[in-house]
């Protein structure tokens, strides 16, 4: 399949990409391309230009700055999966990334591309919410930091504004925290029908779900029920019941609203059991 015609511009820096975005207001940023290119092949998107930011060096890699992990937006899933810094300080991400797509998808897909695209069934948004990540964006008017809780605003919609580029993800290091991601994959696409990420830091529980609704969201009921409680099998089982009401959930051929609500409980329980080592 061929996409519509477009002009190809390769950016070598964030500044150059911002300037290209100003010159080509109808352009799309090209990262790993594994959502954008299929969409263009189906002619659901026909940008006049693509600005390739995937090779911008300042947008790549994982580094540690004091008590924060800084992940460049163009860091690929494969790089996240194999990052020793993440394995040591944020094992949730390598574990969740291992469940994304397949190895070829993980070779190309990027964390920034996934978050900016905000597919309601993407895996990483749930982890961002559970980890309390901050998302950094650079635009013509400067740089700003957006809390993960404020970032996802709707289906394929985020707090990013026109002309802005998502540049970095900042993740607080929670030494000793227990964390895990459990996912029920769509049997063909491997997207999350439902995926739940949990982070238990001392008595503080943060949990979030993807695939269930219009965008990834915190599981407040679960957080309240378990915070301050010991992570026992009985406490986990008692907390993971009726976490979301089916009424507002997604429904499709893969899962009805009621089944999705059931899967949220089951995936939350599995993630917590795994995090607790039970």
């Amino acid at each position: 399949m061929y996409t519509s015609e477009f002009a190809y511009k390769k950016a070598n820096s964030v500044a150059e990409a911002l300037s290209l975005l100003q010159q080509h207001p109808d352009a799309k940023l090209l990262a790993g391309g594994h959502s954008l290119i299929p969409t263009m092949k189906l002619r659901l998107a026909a940008p006049s230009a693509l600005i390739d930011i995937s090779k911008v060096a300042e947008l790549r890699g994982v580094r540690k700055e004091n008590d924060t992990l800084v992940i460049g937006a163009m860091t690929t899933y494969h790089e996240l999966e194999t990052s020793n810094l993440l394995k040591a300080h944020c094992p949730l991400l390598p574990q969740a990334v291992y469940l994304i797509g397949d190895p070829m998808v993980r070779a190309k897909g990027t964390i920034g591309g996934s978050l900016a695209h905000a597919d309601p069934a993407a895996d990483l948004p749930a982890s961002m919410l559970a980890l309390g990540a901050k998302i950094k964006a650079q635009g013509p008017n400067g740089t700003r930091v957006i809390e993960a809780d404020d970032f996802f605003t709707g289906m394929f919609s985020t707090a990013l504004q026109e002309g802005e580029i998502l540049t970095e993800i900042h993740i607080p290091i929670l030494e000793g925290a227990k964390m895990a991601y459990a996912k029920f994959p769509h049997p063909a696409s491997r997207y999350a029908v439902v995926g739940v990420a949990v982070v238990v830091d001392g008595g503080n529980v943060r949990a979030a779900v993807t695939g269930a609704g219009e965008h990834a969201m915190r599981l407040g009921k679960l957080e309240q029920a378990l915070s301050g409680q010991p992570l026992t099998t009985a406490n986990i089982a008692a907390a993971c019941q009726g976490l979301l009401s089916p009424g507002n959930l997604n429904h499709d051929l893969a899962a009805s609203r009621e089944y999705r609500a059931h899967l949220v409980d089951v995936m939350a329980k599995r993630a917590l059991m795994q995090a607790a080592g039970l």
Binding site: Y8, K10, L30, G33, H34, I37, P38, D52, S54, H78, D102, P103, M104, V105, A107, K108
Partner: peptide, 21 residues
Amino acid sequence: GACTVHVDGQAVKSCTMFAVQ
């Protein structure tokens, strides 16, 4: 995955990548 090739040593799906990339 029928279109899988290696680019810089990594397996990728060549139907989801432009030659310019």
